[in-house]
């Protein structure tokens, strides 16, 4: 037997809290893909992605937009007859592909996730306007106009604050974060 971890086991290992989900138990029934509300926007259906994982097609899987199109609605998870937490597996694939720095070009998901995390680490809270530049840029001019309209509307209704909030114990909070991921020394 080879000592190398199969791709399927690698992914299962990235699903830390849910403990070695039985991706291998998949019976390829397609309940997940039949259920998925975003399946139309995926290049492979969730079932096909599981098939590719179990067959060890690493590059094809990482190049897929499937897991970046997952809305985390968990409908597949609750219906899966094999008890696979598919939505959690999609998160695992996102993590895996970001760690490996290997994902489809032009996706907003990875950029968004990173800037979101950066924002939380910087302030302890999330704040919508700060997010805007990353994705408005991706949407092109038309997106910018639409976004600006919406944002102005919200601003007028008092639903967008002008300054981001920060939590008070930010230093300690960042120390806490530092114990898990490297974010540079405290300034």
């Amino acid at each position: 037997m080879s000592n190398e971890l199969s791709f399927s086991n690698e992914i299962a290992n990235v699903m830390y809290a849910t403990h070695g989900n039985p991706i291998k138990d998949c019976l390829q029934c397609g309940t997940c893909s039949g259920t998925c509300p975003a399946v139309e926007f995926m290049d492979h259906t969730p079932r096909a992605i599981i098939g590719l994982i179990n067959a060890g097609y690493r590059d094809e899987v990482l190049a897929s937009n499937t897991f970046w199109s997952c809305a985390s609605c968990y409908h597949c998870t609750v219906r899966c007859p094999a008890g696979i937490d598919i939505a959690d597996m999609m998160y695992a694939l996102k993590r895996y592909s970001m760690w490996k720095g290997q994902h489809q070009e032009g996706l907003i998901g990875p950029v968004f996730a990173q800037s979101f995390v950066k924002m939380i680490v910087d302030s302890g809270r999330s704040f919508e306007p700060l997010l805007a530049p990353t994705y408005i840029f991706k949407h092109g001019p038309r997106g910018l106009v639409q976004e600006a309209q919406t944002a102005t509307g919200l601003m007028l209704k008092g639903r967008l604050p002008l300054l981001p909030k920060k939590i008070k114990g930010l230093k300690k909070f960042q120390n806490m974060v530092r114990r898990i991921i490297p974010i540079g020394e405290p300034s």
Binding site: V14, M15, Y16, A17, S72, Y91, A92, K94, R95, M98, G109, P110, F112, A113, Q114, F116, V117, I120, S126, V177, I180, I181
Partner: peptide
Amino acid sequence: ATAYFPVDELL
């Protein structure tokens, strides 16, 4: 929210 799990589950 949903944006953090793609980066680091433990965090």
